[in-house]
């Protein structure tokens, strides 16, 4: 029996959609990770992510997300007067936030490790 093929979809477009979902899924983990070692304010979080990864938060999205994490009890916030002349709102992980960050990181590591074996042949194909 012959294979029935439909019109070929655009793989780039489909991958873009998938990438959006993927990035969306790791947004919260990225923010929690940025606060793991020290307290930071919004712009500092953006810069840290730019420096430490190839991910850059859309600037207008970090603040509403921080507000939500604060309401959820994952972060605390305090205002600090800065030498620059305007106060900065610093965020700090709460105990619950630290626990959540660890759980999310473990899940992420487990997930990517499991997937790593599956996609190895795909990566080899891409290189050849």
């Amino acid at each position: 029996m012959a294979w029935r093929t439909q019109a070929e979809p655009d793989p780039v477009r489909a991958t873009d959609k998938w990438e959006v979902q993927l990035r969306k899924g790791c947004l919260e983990l990225a923010i929690l990770a940025s606060l793991w070692s020290e307290d930071r304010y919004g712009l500092e979080i953006l810069r840290w992510l730019e420096g430490e990864s190839d991910l850059v938060l859309s600037e207008g999205t970090v603040y509403p997300l921080l507000a939500r994490l604060r309401v959820d009890g994952m972060v605390d916030a305090r205002w600090v007067e800065a030498e620059a002349g305007h106060p900065r709102k610093y965020y700090r992980l709460t105990r619950a936030g630290r626990r959540r960050a660890v759980l999310m990181a473990r899940l992420w590591a487990k997930f990517t490790a499991g997937l790593g074996g599956l996609i190895a042949p795909l990566l080899a194909e891409g290189r050849s």
């Binding site: 990438e19 730019e50 991910l55 938060l57 939500r68």
Partner: peptide
Amino acid sequence: RRGERGSWLHPAA
């Protein structure tokens, strides 16, 4: 469902 809405990360230029 609240975590599923909102915005997301963009790749660095």
